[in-house]
């Protein structure tokens, strides 16, 4: 085991139970690296997850305290937990795209509106993958999955002029970034900023699912095929790209929006308000 794993992760859960070649481990490692580079200890972080590959493969890997919510609801659970925990404890959530942008989207938006101090890492494998590979709300237009055998035809949250991060920004999130799992230190830096924001932060991290997505959409389980697909579609925010030539989905990566610590954090505001009302009634 490497240094990070020894310091922060439980031997029992290593190696991960994810498929070999899965990009999830790249994300997992980047989150742990960010925690380490911020000088945080095991006891400083409470780690939560959702359901699905993203949830199950990262649940209880953290040496400290762990929880996993039901599908899509961990944001509401974490809101209650945020109020109860001391403000210096970090709550980091690793969740799936279906969990965050599908079934849990209402709760996610309300967390953004309230500016609840949470760091949400959306591990996006472009659909519902632990259930075998059905299309989700980030599945690229036209791509085949088990439930879109003729190609994804429904509008998604990513194309046609929509970007899920814009919706979250409008909702009130104070830190938003996107990185694909194949990126390096720049992704770690964004995760660090997300953790440091005392407010609602979300990092959208598309990653290769070799077993289900790649198999159906690209016709190959070979990691090299899926990684190449991702590499071609990972485009820095400020980088020029010939969209017409690409003619397909691509992921603009970098920090989308950084309003860190610019507006009151929900639990802190609630605590202050309660203290003030209490003073009046003493």
């Amino acid at each position: 085991m490497d240094y990070l794993a020894t310091k922060y992760l439980r031997p029992r859960k290593i190696p991960s139970t994810a498929c070999s070649g899965c990009g999830l481990g790249q994300i997992h490692k980047k989150v742990v690296k960010a925690i380490d580079e911020l000088g945080l200890d095991v006891g400083d972080v409470v780690w939560g997850t959702g359901i699905g590959c993203a949830g199950r493969q990262t649940f209880a890997t953290w040496k400290g305290d762990n929880f996993a919510g039901t599908h899509g609801r961990v944001y509401a659970l974490a809101t209650g937990l945020r109020i109860a925990l001391p403000p210096n404890k970090k709550i980091i959530l690793t969740v799936g795209d279906g969990d965050a942008f599908g079934i849990g989207f209402n709760h996610l938006l309300n967390c953004a509106r309230r500016n609840v101090d949470l760091t949400v890492i959306v591990c996006d494998n472009l659909g519902y993958m632990s259930t075998g590979g059905q299309y989700g709300w980030t599945t690229p237009e036209g791509y085949r999955t088990d439930s879109s055998p003729y190609g994804m035809w429904e509008p998604n949250w990513m194309q046609g002029g929509r970007d899920v991060l814009n919706i979250l920004r409008e909702a009130g999130a104070t830190f938003l970034a996107r990185h694909t799992s194949i990126e390096g230190q720049e992704a770690v830096e964004s995760i660090k900023k997300a953790i440091l924001n005392k407010g609602f932060s979300l990092v959208h991290m598309p990653y290769p699912c070799v077993t289900n997505f790649a198999e159906r959409a690209l016709g190959s389980r070979r990691p090299a095929v899926m990684y190449k697909w991702f590499k071609e579609r990972t485009v820095k925010l400020n980088e020029r790209v010939d969209e017409k030539a690409l003619g397909d989905i691509y992921f603009r990566t970098g920090i989308y929006y950084d309003a860190s610590n610019s507006r009151p954090e929900f639990a802190e505001a609630l605590r202050n308000r309660v203290a003030e009302i209490q003073r009046r009634f003493r």
């Binding site: 509401a76 659970l77 809101t79 209650g80 937990l81 945020r82 109020i83």
Partner: peptide, 8 residues
């Protein structure tokens, strides 16, 4: 869920 999270 918020109640349960707070209890947690």
């Amino acid at each position: 869920h918020i109640c349960v999270g707070a209890s947690l």
